[in-house]
């Protein structure tokens, strides 16, 4: 599903990633783990082509990300569900409307929206908060709304940047259970986190990063034959 080959990314004089190579297979659940500034978010931004790498190659779903044209970029991003670190919910719209717009972008007919949105909101436990604006939701609820928006489009790949950052242990684990459930449906899930307890509990493949370099469990999944 995802292949990084000697990818380097710098921000001015700061090296965010240096010669990073790894592979994530279809249907895998992977944690990107490391302290702040390790390069986790940079990896997710590179996958989404929000930023460009300086050197190296990135393939997502067999496609060279650097070769995706401006015209094809929206179509590529529609296949990726993303939970952003800063949530990126539309503040002028309710939680429900934030999910609606994601479906509208995909061109899904309006009559089908309600069923899909209600199902996802129930999954993340936000059904009784759906008509509230982000400013009226708690930090945890905003995070769950952001997750719901990523899931409602039924993507092949889910990128989650610190999806449990504002949640207590119980809620954080609930979110992870939702992601695990989605993963069991065959979706590839990549979670960037520094929450060691969650990572320990989930028992999934972990890619550890520090100062822009991968330091352990790098290119092999636990069940990988290679």
């Amino acid at each position: 599903m995802i292949k990084f080959n000697k990818v380097t990314k710098t921000y001015g004089e700061v090296c965010a990633l240096k010669d990073v190579s790894f592979e994530v297979k279809d249907g895998e659940f992977v944690f990107l783990m490391g302290p702040s500034g390790a390069g986790k978010t940079t990896i997710l931004k590179l996958i989404l082509k929000e930023i460009f790498s300086d050197t190296g190659e990135i393939h997502v779903g067999g496609v060279d990300v650097s070769k995706i044209s401006e015209k094809d970029l929206p179509g590529f991003r529609q296949k990726v569900g993303c939970v952003f670190q800063d949530f990126k919910l539309l503040n002028e719209r309710t939680a429900y409307e934030n999910l609606e717009i994601a479906l509208a972008i995909l061109g899904i007919p309006e009559p089908k929206w309600k069923e899909r949105i209600d199902k996802v909101l129930k999954m993340v436990g936000l059904q009784d908060r759906k008509n509230l604006f982000p400013s009226q939701l708690s930090g945890g609820e905003i995070q769950r709304a952001s997750l719901a928006r990523a899931l409602v489009v039924n993507p092949d790949l889910i990128l989650a940047d610190e999806p449990t950052g504002n949640l207590d242990w119980e809620k954080a684990y609930e979110i992870m259970e939702v992601l695990e459930k989605i993963n069991k449906e065959g979706k590839c899930v990549i979670v960037a986190t520094h929450n060691k307890e969650i990572v320990g509990k989930m028992k999934k493949r972990v890619i550890k990063l520090t100062s822009g370099k991968i330091i352990s469990a790098l290119n092999k999944t636990p069940d990988s034959k290679s």
Binding site: G75, C82, I105
Partner: peptide, 15 residues
């Protein structure tokens, strides 16, 4: 900000 977010979640320019 809305324009930026819509770009990130795959909205076409026309949308």
């Amino acid at each position: 900000q809305e324009v930026e977010i819509l770009n990130l979640i795959g909205a076409k320019k026309s949308f």
